[in-house]
Design a protein around this nucleic acid. Structure first.
Lengths: 129, 129
DNA sequence: TACATATATATCCTTAAAGGATATATGTCA
DNA sequence: TGACATATATCCTTTAAGGATATATATGTA
């Protein structure tokens, strides 16, 4: 059972919730791109390091939309950092995400419970044919 | 709170779990494209009618991959129907989807619970700034 | 017969999001 | 000096979904 198919769920370009992960990280603490790559791993949706291009693309887009704002920090060691901060609009957007994610979680739960209802309990064969 | 942002979660091209919805419908009952459009609505992820093009595209792709098989049914009223049936491989793939979806549901729950942990309980303001 | 409607499948193009490669610049340390 | 870690930026490709449109068959009805 559960052989490796050519196309496994999760192998494609599935939703990885990178945008809400960035917003959530920034709600906890203002930060910058390079650090966010590490931070968002802790939130569970991105395994390993997210490609930097994705993070910077999201940050630029979020700033365009007014969800975050940024300023250069040149003091301190190493190259200058662009520090991003969540705006009130971004805070609202994060809350919209939370509601969306709760809704998705509920639908997923209904779906998988429905599956186990027709196949018998979890842990037994999933086949009825 | 929760003003309408220019880009609301769920407005873009988010994951709608159409493939597992089709597999689940076919596990319950062999069916054909036109009927599946109605059936998968009941599974919660697709509101309204899914665009027919999406359904037929998925069915063709799933058949190519050996997850479903089909045969024409010409008897009965109306145009001929191509009846799709889940294969054992498709059954395995559905189970892979179930595991993936359970994992996603757990991550989503952790994420939203983490949010409420830092903002206070659900129902109060989501702002801490 | 002619036409409208419901049923049913198929094909096509566009857009959104993610994957992933690469370039550039700065400071530290051996 | 050269290697390395830090840090940002830009670019192109791939995948999945959105959505429009074409085609064909059977039925009811004016």
């Amino acid at each position: 059972m559960n052989q490796k198919n050519t196309k496994d769920p999760g192998s494609g370009k599935r939703q990885r919730y990178i945008q809400p992960s960035i917003l959530m990280s920034l709600k906890l603490k203002s930060s910058y791109g390079y650090e966010l790559i590490q931070e968002i791993q802790k939130l569970g949706f991105v395994e390993g390091s997210a490609p930097p291009g994705m993070i910077y693309r999201h940050l630029r887009q979020l700033e365009e939309e007014g969800m975050v704002c940024s300023e250069w920090h040149t003091e301190g060691a190493g190259p200058a950092r662009r520090i991003y901060r969540l705006t009130p609009e971004g805070d609202d957007m994060l809350y919209s995400w939370i509601q969306y994610m709760e809704d998705q979680a509920r639908k997923l739960k209904d779906f998988t419970e429905g599956y186990y209802r027709i196949t018998g309990c979890q842990g037994t064969s999933h086949s009825i044919e």
